[in-house]
Amino acid sequence: MSMRGLSMSVLAFLFTSFFSAAIIVIGPGDFANRTLCTILLSPFVWGLAMFYCYWDELAWRPTAALSAVTAACAVVVFMFEVRL
């Protein structure tokens, strides 16, 4: 599988999961609205991440960008407590 294919099928999903969790942990607004907003946006976030994997001219760039943001979100998720 190509780098783009791997990023699209695996990394985009990981990115969406950690990005959504990070929004729930430290995002603005009250908790219930934040969670619903995350669920509502998840198909778009995931879809756009997949789309970006094939949009960028250089194959390594989406992989690097998605990995970096996923790592940053993971830090937020594991370092901060959920703001209720």
Binding site: S17, F18, S20, A21, I39, P43, V77, V82
Partner: peptide, 14 residues
């Protein structure tokens, strides 16, 4: 996706 993400988000955030 609610069914897929809810346990994942609960695992990560809760």
């Amino acid at each position: 996706l609610v069914v897929l993400f809810l346990p994942i988000l609960a695992l990560l955030a809760f």
